[in-house]
């Protein structure tokens, strides 16, 4: 690929001459190589797909990313290489789309309905037989009760729902946000504040991370 400077990229992508098409196609090819590489080598969840499917996926993600890139050229402040800036947009498009597909059937209903939101120890990977320290099992159960109390007493309803999805179900913030009619930043903040409350609650009970990791490790 010919070495364009940041200024070359910007002026070519904003021009109305043939250099626009050249730059756009060069950027497209560049991003497709990178996104293909990521999908092929770093996504074990896609490993069963043939190369041609992965290539098609990369092309689709990059097409969506290029629209965003062209729309936001004026926000590029020149503090990185242009191609790094464009690639971060492609990365976010690809991951957002993969998350959307992965969680398309996920619902928060089981967390908002009356009833138990705390998973039991077994679904958190802790069983008396599987534990390296079976003699600690009673204490592990006690900790889970404490965590349950923290969820019930320290959090608002919205925080409880969001944090349960985030912590226990491992759902990404943007997917929780979509289901709670808010945006990723606001949801992240809601979750972050809730995490701090849980942390302080647990610390007030005399618990530390080191202790808990040794108990459950």
């Amino acid at each position: 690929m010919s070495e364009r400077t940041n200024q070359d990229w910007l002026s070519d992508l904003q021009s109305e001459s043939a250099s626009y098409v050249d730059a756009l196609e060069a950027l497209r090819a560049h991003l497709e190589r990178g996104v293909f590489y990521y999908l092929r080598h770093d996504r074990s969840d896609l490993s069963q797909l043939p190369d041609e499917d992965i290539r098609q996926m990369a092309q689709d993600f990059v097409q969506d990313a290029l629209i965003k890139i062209l729309d936001s050229l004026e926000t590029f402040r020149g503090e990185s290489k242009f191609t790094t800036w464009a690639s971060k947009i492609a990365a976010r498009v690809a991951i957002s789309e993969l998350r959307r597909v992965r969680y398309k059937d996920y619902s928060l209903e089981h967390l908002t309905a009356e009833g138990e939101i705390m998973p039991d120890l077994a679904s958190l990977g802790v069983t008396p037989e599987g534990s390296p320290h079976p003699e600690n099992y009673a204490e592990q159960q006690e900790i889970l009760h404490m965590l349950k109390d923290a969820f019930e007493n320290a959090l608002t309803d919205r925080q409880r729902t969001a944090l349960s999805a985030y912590i226990f179900d491992g759902v990404p913030v943007e997917e929780i946000a979509r289901r709670m009619d808010t945006n990723r930043n606001a949801l992240y903040k809601l979750v972050h504040d809730g995490r701090l409350k849980l942390k302080h609650y647990m610390e007030d009970q005399g618990l530390s991370l080191e202790y808990l990791l040794s108990l459950f490790g």
């Binding site: 560049h30 991003l31 190589r33 990178g34 996104v35 293909f36 590489y37 990521y38 080598h41 770093d42 191609t83 790094t84 690639s87 971060k88 492609a90 990365a91 976010r92 690809a94 991951i95 990404p172 913030v173 943007e174 990723r184 992240y188």
Partner: peptide, 18 residues
């Protein structure tokens, strides 16, 4: 933030592929 961390790792990988 595990979501941003994942996007960060994806970006590193994409740049490596490029």
């Amino acid at each position: 933030c595990r979501c941003c961390e994942m996007e960060f790792r994806a970006l590193i990988s994409i740049l490596e592929g490029e």
